[in-house]
Simulated assay, not measured.
Amino acid sequence: MIRPNASLRQIYESGLARQYADWLAGMNESIAISRNLQSLGLPGAWSVGRVQTPTLALLAKPPHV
């Protein structure tokens, strides 16, 4: 069924707000964690994100036996 664009505007705006919040939080958290870990002597840049962090953990950790 074809619906008018106006009926989907709220869903679009919710997704856009979530995308912006994820980007902003991830950027700030990545900078904060990188600076804190670098002050402890751990080199490199660390990346944090709402979806990225658990996905990378699944890829980096071996499966439980």
Rank of each mutant, 00 (worst) to 15 (best):
S30M: 09
Q52D: 13
E13K: 15
Y12A: 13
R35G: 04
H64S: 12
R9F: 10
N36P: 01
N5S: 14
Q10H: 10
N28I: 11
W46Q: 03
Q10I: 11
G15M: 06
R50H: 09
Q19E: 15
V65Y: 03
E29P: 00
T55R: 12
Q38T: 06
R3C: 08
P54L: 09
A57H: 07
L59N: 09
Q19V: 14
G26F: 00
R50G: 03
H64F: 14
A45I: 11
L16S: 14
I31K: 12
E29C: 05
L56M: 12
P4V: 13
Q52P: 03
R9D: 10
Y12K: 07
H64W: 13
A45F: 06
T53Y: 01
R50C: 05
Q38D: 00
L56E: 11
P43K: 04
H64K: 12
A32K: 04
S14N: 14
R35Y: 05
Q38C: 04
L58F: 05
S47F: 03
R35E: 15
G26S: 09
M1D: 13
M27Y: 12
K61Y: 08
D22K: 04
Y20P: 01
L59H: 07
G49N: 00
A21M: 15
R9L: 14
N28H: 08
L59F: 10
L40S: 09
L37R: 00
S30N: 05
S30Y: 01
Q10N: 11
V51P: 00
W23S: 09
G49P: 00
L58M: 09
I33P: 01
R3Y: 07
T53K: 02
G15A: 06
L56Q: 08
L8Q: 11
A45Q: 08
Q19F: 14
R50V: 09
L8C: 09
G49M: 05
A21W: 06
L8M: 11
A21S: 11
P4L: 14
G49Q: 02
L58K: 06
G44E: 05
A45T: 08
L24A: 12
E29S: 05
L40V: 05
I33F: 02
S34G: 03
S39Q: 14
G26H: 00
R3D: 10
A45R: 05
S34K: 01
I2Q: 04
N36S: 15
